[in-house]
Design a protein around this nucleic acid. Structure first.
Lengths: 173, 173
DNA sequence: GTGCTATATATCAAATTGATATATAGCACG
DNA sequence: CGTGCTATATATCAATTTGATATATAGCAC
């Protein structure tokens, strides 16, 4: 399913697997991350389907595999982009633990929530500084929208967990 | 990593793989879902580590594999529960497509967002009716908290995407 | 010329998904 | 009584993904 993210990056320019992975940093990594161990096999699949073309290049004496999207690849990517996205499922370890909190004691629950809020704040700071860095740059408006969603999402989480922490304070121990 | 969710369910009572899967419905499935195809191998692993014990039972002439958590399994589960949960990563196809929206046309973008909001509202109704059904029942307060998070999360999404839709209306086409 | 970091690819075991196959139980309908 | 439908229950498999590890070169600093 991550084949399309690779094609999406190649829409901009031909890239090596390593370059795609780097390009994900600070952009898609916050809402759709992949590992190098899946990027290389994915390029192999895409090549077999002739959606990309591998170009072996020698740069400063080093061999690189640069992948270029083909017209067929572009069509494939645009057909995928056209389809309405599926509803996101939450997959959160924090909620899973919360579900089983009857088995944890009150101090553990409180510590979890406080440390979780700290982590949320760290991520929030990261995303905000990233967005500030993009302001004024030639970054696309939609890329900024995805960052904005992330920022608002973590703000929502901070609010929710702070309220939850309060309700924990009132629990009968 | 899903071994702990199985142990968590067995904390309540011994269960078959099929029963665990059923128990996830309407409870953990919204924030942590797994398939039967991963539950059975997971029980195999847990048995090898003596964290659960398989009991072959004959019920109405049918053989069942009922799994019971061992004291070692309980210790293992509680040790996992103790640790502060990792920060949730978003993994949303909708944001991935949004990232590449430069390549889609304005009507497609609008249709996406409207249909996505519809899907969010459907999920929201589902979660709300589930929570209402739990009110007054003997359901644990933390289980209700996880449902509440879900409800508030999808409300947040509805708000955000409605604002986003508005901003799309103002875009230069 | 030694050591560190970045670039670049490849490989692998382990886990997970989603699909499919198999078989029985229980129920309803005519 | 049999036919068909749905729920229960387990097993298996190809394909994919992760996270780790291995390997090798380039470029820079000291």
């Amino acid at each position: 399913m991550q084949d399309n993210i690779l094609l999406g990056f190649l829409m901009h320019r031909p890239m090596t697997g390593y370059e795609v992975k780097k390009a994900m940093g600070g952009s898609t990594e916050f809402f759709f991350n992949t590992s190098l161990g899946s990027i290389y096999p994915a390029f192999g699949r895409l090549e077999k389907q002739t959606l990309v073309k591998k170009e072996r290049r020698l740069e400063q004496g080093r061999a690189k595999n640069v992948y270029r999207i083909t017209p067929k690849g572009k069509k494939h990517f645009l057909a995928w982009l056209e389809k309405t996205p599926k509803l996101a499922n939450i997959r959160e370890e924090s909620l899973l633990k919360m579900f089983f909190y009857e088995h944890a004691d009150a101090p553990t629950r409180g510590r979890h929530v406080r440390e979780y809020i700290d982590a949320v704040e760290g991520r929030l700071a990261e995303l905000i500084s990233l967005r500030d860095g993009l302001r004024g740059s030639k970054a696309g408006r939609y890329r900024i929208s995805t960052l904005d969603f992330g920022i608002e999402f973590y703000r929502f989480q901070r609010r929710w967990y702070e309220k939850f922490l309060e309700s924990l304070g009132n629990e009968a121990i």
